[in-house]
Every structure is written in C-alpha cells, then in structure tokens.
Design a protein around this nucleic acid. Sequence first.
DNA 1: CTTTCAGCCTGACGGC
DNA 2: TGCCGTCAGGCTGAAA
Length: 268
Amino acid sequence: MPELPEVETTLRGLKPWLVGATITEVKVRQPALRWPVVDNLPDLLIGQVILCMGRRAKYLRLSLKNGSLLIHLGMSGSLRLLSANEPWRKHDHIEVVVHTGKRIRYHDPRRFGSWSWTFNEHHQLTNLGPEPLSTHFDGNHLYRLGRGRKLPVKNFIMSSEIVVGVGNIYAAESLFRAGIRPDRSAGRISLKRYIALSQHIKAVLRTAIEQGGTTLRDFVDSVGDPGYFKQQLKVYGRHGRPCTVCKAPLKLTRLGQRSTVFCNRCQT
DNA sequence: CTTTCAGCCTGACGGC
DNA sequence: TGCCGTCAGGCTGAAA
C-alpha cells in the first residue's frame, strides 16, 4: 500500500516529466473515488501548465495557474507514466496527457484514493501536523502534545494532526525499535523515550524512502511493488513468530480497529 | 475538549 | 468448484 515513501518516490519519478508541461487531455472513466471527482475536471485542467509539484503528508499536489490538484493514493492507488496510449486496464480510473505525449494513469482497485481540485487552499491540508522528516518533528513535539492524552501511543503517532505520514506499518515498526508498548497511553511516556521514538520514526521512514528509490526506481514500468521494505519488517505481519531480539512469540492485538503486532517482553 | 467507530471499496483467503 | 464471511487499510465525520 502507498505509504509516505511510495508517495515520495512517485513524486520524484513523475516530476521531471510533468513540471512545465501543458495538459492536453484528461479522461475520467470512474469518478467515484473516496470523494466524487468534479465532473468538469477536464475543463479545469486542459490547456494549463503544471507549474510545480510537491508532497504534503501522503498527498501529491500539482500546482497550476488557477488552482491546484491534490491526489491521494489511498490504500491501493498508483500513478503510472506511459509514453504512448495503452489499453485501459481494469481499475484504471483517470488519465492525464501532456503536450509531450507523456501520460499518467491513475489505477486504484479499492478507490480509497482521491483527486480533488481547489481554486485556492485545500481544506484537507489544514490542521496537519509537521512532516516527520522535518526539524519541526522531534521528541519534544511528541512529549508536549502527548501531555494529558489517554489514547494509545500508536494511535497518537498515527494521528495526522500530531505528525503526518506514519501509517500502521511504520507505527508498529518504530514502536518496536523504541521498545515502547503500542497500547501505552500517550500521556504516560517520558521525554527521553519520545526522543528515541521520534528518531526511530525518522530512521524507518528514511530507510523506506531509500528502498523505494531503489526498488521502485523504474516505477514507470511497474508501480506498487509491495515487497520493497518487507525484509526489514521486524513486527508487522509477524505475529506468532519469534521476536528478532528475544525470540518470544510476537503478540497480535487491535488498537483503533488496526491490527497491531508487538513483543510483550521487549516493549514496555 | 477527547476518544471511538462506521463507512468507503475490492481482492485475497479460509471454511464448508 | 463456488459461495460466503472476514480481513486489510487511510481518512473523515458523526456519535459518545
């Protein structure tokens, strides 16, 4: 599934081909995504120049003169860069063609993703916490915002108003590396441990971005390879199997309707 | 205010 | 073999 590293990799791959290009064609075959795609999207985009592209949280933003397009890949979305017209595959929902002939295809079986247009500010981007890899995110930030909060620390670090881009996989992995139980209350964790946790979150995400950059470098031809970080996962998807540190069987629990794996001995 | 939870959607998988 | 239930997951908005 697209986590922050895949979104970042997608951005880096598409940018050179799209920034500065003029949109010549837009086809929406399936507008029923997370939110309905506006029906005049082609009119809004055709003839416009893509001025710049960026990422905020797990959103990709394409800035045009009149406004901007915000794309979220949801659970199963991917963007493929095509050099020529290709037959539409099942679950290909949207295509954007630019004047050079390059085209991007949006593919999303579960349709949890979104394409939203705005003339000014995207409301989805307000109330977002800092980027995890920025200097605005550190142990002090987590400690300060965690005071008085009773929810489990895993849910806390997965909240986008606290910090963005930490999904279920990376939350579990960084908590294991920091030795913190995922069900511990956010308000009952020391500054020292939050400093360690923030550092592990950064390290895990950085590694995954590097891996994405390696495995998905040719994402032009194949997108969404889910195996890129798998070898490095120490807890996610490994419940019942031995802890890599103490060999005790890893526990499975549910927090906030999310499956959560942890080591009952190493995480306290 | 904080926290919980249903809902969106398809494909994979297990049990019968 | 096929059918049916369950699960997976990010994010929102409503309920508690």
